[in-house]
Design a protein around this nucleic acid. Structure first.
Lengths: 202, 202
DNA sequence: AGAAAATTTAACCAAAAGGTTAAACCAACG
DNA sequence: CGTTGGTTTAACCTTTTGGTTAAATTTTCT
């Protein structure tokens, strides 16, 4: 049951992440976190003073890992089309492995935008500007159709993330088993990029 | 304060919808619902026995209004491209007016897929099949590029809904005021359709 | 071995929240 | 006028839950 490798603190953070991602802040129970970590409530509070503190830790951990990863590719000096292929491919791969993340992030971002605001503005602004400039230049050079970088980015992020949020609906609506759905997501790792490229190519 | 037109029951349902959409099931407080409806807790329980009963009512009301609306256009015998234009246009318009809906539905759908399952399978399956057939035929006739109707539908729904879920992020990331964001969404009502059509046109 | 830190046990506290109850109040209606 | 049903008031109950405490036990490290 106990992996001697992982410290108690890590065990707690893992359990807390699991529970918070599934149930949200209000829906999560400290008792359940303790149970899943294989410890008791007293020890849980011994490590993390309060539920809110623990939650904040999970949020910043989640955003801190997902945001840099998301923006890293935006800053490379790849060709635009190649960059789009990489973005789509890597983002979908990441979300596939962390399928509870999107719903959690989306909830937290809507519940408390301030927090996200600080994370984003300070460090990560340049990455977006690079992408923006790249799109604008490609438009100016007539290499792609006139498209706003804002709209393009929204389209990309939407097609990458949303299917995981709507998974239960899509699965039923399209009559897919869990494995078939996963397979469909694998397909998207290349198809969405080509879809986008066809849409903007002159 | 009290509109004599709306009955108490309606006042409660409106208040409950507002609170549940904002806070979710676990985060909502019966007291707050009572306050917003302008009544007291005793009367609230006099009309709706329990929180869960009330919540279920709000959920089925939300799904019951959004689902038929979503699927209505899918069943018309419009030309495929024209249908896509209508779908995008109307869906975005609807979500714009009910901006709390997407997050609520997405949460509920992931929390309790069964409920949605029943609503969808029983009545609304034919609509999807019509669209599916239409896409497959267009592919067979070589009028559009080979694309799976499943992928196409996911792309469409994603680009329509997700920007509203990620609104706080996009607003900050793209440096938009609330009005500018709304304007960008207005643009999407036509641009997303053209984006899709360019992507699938031969 | 012995001090220090981690962990358990178990009882306990206080606040929040869902829900109930009974009595009184009030407006509509026959 | 009196009944009826909606509504308020206010007290109350119960359960859940976040959080605490103190003592005992185990582990770790020197």
């Amino acid at each position: 049951m106990d992996d001697p490798k992982r410290s108690t603190e890590e065990l707690i953070l893992e359990a807390a992440q699991a529970v918070f991602l599934e149930k949200g802040l209000a829906g999560a129970r400290m008792q359940e976190i303790a149970d899943r970590a294989g410890i008791n409530k007293a020890l849980l509070h011994y490590y993390f003073r309060s539920k809110d503190k623990l939650f904040e830790m999970i949020v910043s951990q989640a955003i801190g890992t997902i945001l840099p990863r998301m923006l890293a590719v935006l800053d490379t000096d790849l060709d635009l089309f190649e960059k789009i292929r990489r973005l789509v491919n890597e983002y979908i791969a990441f979300v596939s492995r962390n399928s509870f993340m999107p719903l959690f992030i989306v909830n937290e971002v809507n519940r408390n935008p301030q927090f996200f605001f600080k994370s984003l503005v300070q460090q990560e602004r340049p990455h977006l500007d690079t992408f923006r400039r790249q799109v604008d230049e490609a438009v100016a050079q007539g290499r792609i159709r006139p498209v706003s970088s804002a709209q393009l980015l929204m389209n990309l992020m939407s097609m990458v993330i949303f299917p995981f949020l709507g998974k239960p609906v899509f699965q039923v609506a399209l009559g897919l088993s869990a494995e078939e759905f996963q397979l469909e997501m694998e397909r998207r790792r290349t198809e969405v990029a080509e879809f986008i490229i066809r849409a903007i190519r002159v």
